[in-house]
Amino acid sequence: MKSIMKKEASIAVIIIILSIVLSFINPVFLTIDNILDILKGNVVLGILAMGMTLVIITGGIDVSVAAVTTAVCVVIGKLLVMVPDHIGALFLLLVIACLLGIILGGINGFLVSKIEIPAIVVTLGTMSMINGIVLYVTNGQYLNSTDFPKVFLKFSNIKILGVSILIWLFFLIAILTWFLLKHTVMGREILAIGGNKESALRVGINFNKVQIFVFAYMGFLAGIAAIAQISYTKAVDPNGLSGLELSVIAAVVLGGTNIMGGRGTVIGTILGVLLLGIIQNGLILARIDIFWQKVVVGLIILLAVSYDHIQYKRAQAQLSRIEIDS
C-alpha cells in the first residue's frame, strides 16, 4: 500500500522543489493572486483530466476530449446568443451541455465496448470527424461575449470566499470523481478491470457496461468543461482547444496513473495538472528566454517521469532485499 502513495509523493516533491525555486527567482509566484490565476487557468484541463483518469484506469484512452469539448462549446455558444437573460436558461444550458457531452462520449464508449475497436483508434476517428464538422459548420467563426446574456457573464464572475466559481467547480468535480472511484460499486469495478481484466470478468463484472460508463462520464465532464471554458474565455473559439488532448493525457500520466490501466488516483491527477500549470506559469515569471522555454518544459517533464520511475524501482529493489533478508 505504501508504494502506491509513493508515486503521488514524488510528484508532490517535484512540485514543491519547483515552487521553491520559482519563488526565489520571482517572489510574485507565491502570491495568492498568482496561485488563484494558475488554478483558474487550468480548470478546463483539470476537469477533463478527472474523466481521463477513469478512462486510462480501465486501460483505454480518449484523444477526442478536446474535440468533444469544442463541439459542446460551439453548440452552447450558439444557444447563448438566443436564450433569454434568465437564471433558468443558464441551468437549461448546463443540462444541455452535459447531455450533449454524454451522447458524444457514449458514442465513443459504444464503439469501444460493443464493436471492440481499440479506444485510441475510435477516439482518433471521432476526433477527426468532430473537428471537421465543427470547422465546417462554424467556419472557425469566433463568438464574443457581446451577445451573451448578462446572467451568464455574472455567473462566470461569481467569487465565493474570494475564489472564482470555476475553481470551486473544479474541486466539486474532483470530489465527485474521488467519491465515485472510492465509494461506489462502479468505481471498484473500474479499478478491478484495469487491474486484471480476466479475473474481473470472471467475478462477473460487466466489462461493456463499465467501458460505456467511463466514456460517457468523460463526455459528461467534457460538457462541464465546455461551460467552464466559455466562462473562462468569455468567448467561443473553435480552434482554441486544439492540441489540449495531449496536455490532458500528460497531466493524468504525470499524476501516476498507469497508461496500461489499473492504477490511478484523483489526488495524483490534481498534482499532475498543477505541475503542468506551474511550469507554464513559471516560464514568464522566471524570465526564461522565449526560445528556450520549450526545452525547459520538455526537460522538466522528462526529469519528473524519470525521477518518479527511479524512485519506484528503488522501492522495488528495497522490497526484494527485505524479502531475501527475512
Binding site: 500528460a250 517533464i301 522528462l302
Partner: peptide
C-alpha cells in the same frame, strides 16, 4: 510519456 517529453524537448 517519454516521447511526449522528448516531443516538446525537440521542438524547443
Amino acid at each position: 510519456l517519454v516521447t511526449l517529453g522528448t516531443m516538446i524537448l525537440f521542438e524547443g
